[in-house]
């Protein structure tokens, strides 16, 4: 059953087309949105969260058209932005409290849910720490905890591992995969890193604002007659080795 439906969504900045008639449907599961920098991933997330309005197209989350029911749709979304969005001067718990109240949760609900997500992410001991004192990895975990405490149906992760060391990156990725399995979440994980997409249920390849493919990693490799997801990506996008080198560096 489809949780998120995106139909013919386009978005331009002046003469630059950031998204061109992008359409896809997502059910519960882990989906990687794969594309190089500038592919339109962040624009797509901003459109999905109502920060930008699309020029054309329709987005429906669990039957709610976000153009007409944005607050109700946002209540079902958890978002971790590419740019960290924690109030560093406040404690972990205060950040969570603030978010819970923005979502209209009662104090008792906030307490119960924040305790649960902090325990899940092994952050309980850091609850009263000021966020400024946390490591980059733990800050990201707090942002994930914050996104999860409202029990979303759809979790949007916009290049959430940027700036993390390999261990923290792997740990976060593994945790989100586990969540997906346990809670039947729909996760859209934007990344430009091939290895983060390899274990996804499906990979959505976004390039220059166009959605080139939506299939499992194995299907993409088979369809393009290549031997790896990286090669499949190049085949689909028609990118040059220069870009390959750029991606490899990333």
């Amino acid at each position: 059953m489809s949780i998120l439906s995106v139909q013919s969504v386009s978005k331009s900045y002046g003469s630059v087309a950031a998204l061109q008639a992008v359409s896809f449907n997502l059910a519960a599961g882990f989906y990687a949105l794969l594309g190089p920098n500038g592919a339109g991933k962040s624009t797509l997330f901003q459109v999905l969260t109502g920060l930008f309005a699309p020029d054309q197209g329709e987005i429906v989350l669990n039957g709610l058209n976000i153009k007409h029911n944005l607050p109700a749709a946002l209540a079902q979304m958890g978002v971790v932005f590419q740019q960290p969005a924690l109030d560093l001067d406040l404690s972990v718990q205060t950040n969570l409290n603030f978010h819970g109240k923005l979502h209209g949760l009662s104090n008792s609900n906030i307490k119960a849910r924040s305790q649960a997500v902090l325990a899940q992410l092994a952050l309980t001991e850091l609850a009263n720490q000021t966020c400024r004192r946390l490591s980059g990895g733990n800050r990201r975990k707090v942002e994930l905890a914050r996104a999860l405490m409202t029990e979303p149906q759809l979790l949007l992760m916009d290049e959430a591992t940027v700036g993390l060391d390999p261990a923290s990156r792997a740990s976060l990725l593994t945790y989100v995969h586990q969540l997906c399995d346990q809670q039947k979440l729909c996760v859209l994980w934007a990344t430009h890193l091939i290895d983060e997409a390899e274990n996804a249920q499906q990979v959505l390849v976004l390039h220059k604002g166009k959605l080139l493919a939506q299939a499992s990693p194995a299907q993409l490799i088979a369809q393009t007659a290549t031997s790896s997801l990286l090669e499949a990506f190049f085949q689909l996008s028609g990118e040059t080795p220069g870009v390959e080198a750029k991606l490899a560096r990333l």
Binding site: T49, G50, P71, A72, L74, Q83, A85, H99, L102, G104
Partner: peptide, 14 residues
């Protein structure tokens, strides 16, 4: 600039 505005504007409130 710090990104906190996005958090506010993506809250499920008008």
């Amino acid at each position: 600039e710090m990104g906190l505005m996005r958090l506010l504007l993506t809250a499920p409130q008008p």
